[in-house]
Amino acid sequence: MGSNTANNDFAPVKSPETEKPFKVFVGYDPGEDVAYEVCRYSILKRSSIPVDVIPIKQSELRDSKLYWRERGKLESTEFSFSRFLTPYLANYDGWAMFVDCDFLYLTDIKVLKDLVDDKYALMCVHHDYAPKETTKMDGRVQTVYPRKNWSSMVLYNCGHPKNRQLTVEVVNTQSGAYLHRFQWLEDEEIGSVPFVWNFLVGHNEVVEGNPTTYPKAIHYTLGGPWFDAWKDCQFGDLWLAELENYKKEQEKNKVK
């Protein structure tokens, strides 16, 4: 877990409610530990608000008896289903975010948090995405289904009554279709976020001369530079530069 609190002598006095750290739950997979660390680092270094970054680790959830479903053959990561515990882990209170570990944030998370609207149960990028590839990352199977990648970055209104349906039992027993398609909700309860907050490498495009199409958060959904085969992917240089900055920060902390 990490936190980052902005220092601003001229900031207005905030109420205790607004001072609560924004909880960001990041999907964690032991095979992509470095991806998690860089994602976490990229969020915290740019945040102007208090943030708690919390990894969702399947091993810890199993030890706590919060997760017991068997891993299916089509689950490409350990957090394929545990991600839906986010409202529960946030005590069904306030807004919290879930994000896959294969993200790189380029913009202050406050800008994203400011988009939340309490009339929605959750908000995400409404991708129209049907990958042509049959494999992704390190050779794992690529699956295609409605609302694919919608659940890879979600702003949850954890206190919304509908999200109380996401109990530990439901997350462990319901189908992938039910969970990834948000079938506990009506369509009008799913708010939309601009695609630049979940910019899919290999799918979304930057339009020259249109700065609104440049990513605020890059999602290396097919595979990122932490895999040898993907070191030269689009925006791979940005991730590698962030990795170097993270390493330097770690060295500085060791010296201290």
Rank of each mutant, 00 (worst) to 15 (best):
R164S: 08
V206L: 04
N198P: 01
W197F: 13
N204P: 15
L179C: 10
V171S: 04
I190M: 12
C158N: 07
Q165K: 03
L166C: 06
E208P: 12
L166T: 04
Q183W: 12
W184I: 06
Y156P: 13
I190D: 08
V170L: 12
C158G: 05
W184Q: 07
T167I: 07
E205M: 11
A177S: 15
V171R: 07
P194D: 07
Q183M: 15
E186R: 09
R164Y: 10
G159N: 03
T167G: 09
V196C: 13
T173S: 15
V196K: 15
V193S: 10
N198Y: 00
T173M: 12
P161G: 06
R181N: 14
N163C: 06
V206W: 08
E169T: 03
G176D: 08
M153W: 00
Y156W: 10
F195E: 00
V207H: 07
N163Y: 03
T173G: 13
S152F: 03
E188G: 13
Y178L: 10
V193H: 01
N204E: 15
I190K: 11
K162M: 01
K162P: 02
G176P: 05
E189K: 03
F195W: 04
N172T: 05
D187A: 14
V170K: 08
H180V: 05
S152V: 03
Q174I: 05
T167V: 02
L185C: 12
L155Y: 02
E188T: 11
L155I: 04
G191P: 00
V171P: 09
V171W: 07
F182M: 15
M153I: 00
E169K: 04
N172G: 05
M153S: 02
E188W: 13
G159W: 02
V196D: 15
L179G: 11
L179I: 05
Y178V: 10
T167W: 04
E169N: 03
G202C: 00
K162T: 00
W197I: 00
Q165D: 04
E208W: 07
S192D: 11
V154M: 00
V206E: 13
C158K: 00
V207Q: 10
M153F: 01
L200H: 04
V201H: 01
F199R: 15
K162F: 00
Y178E: 13
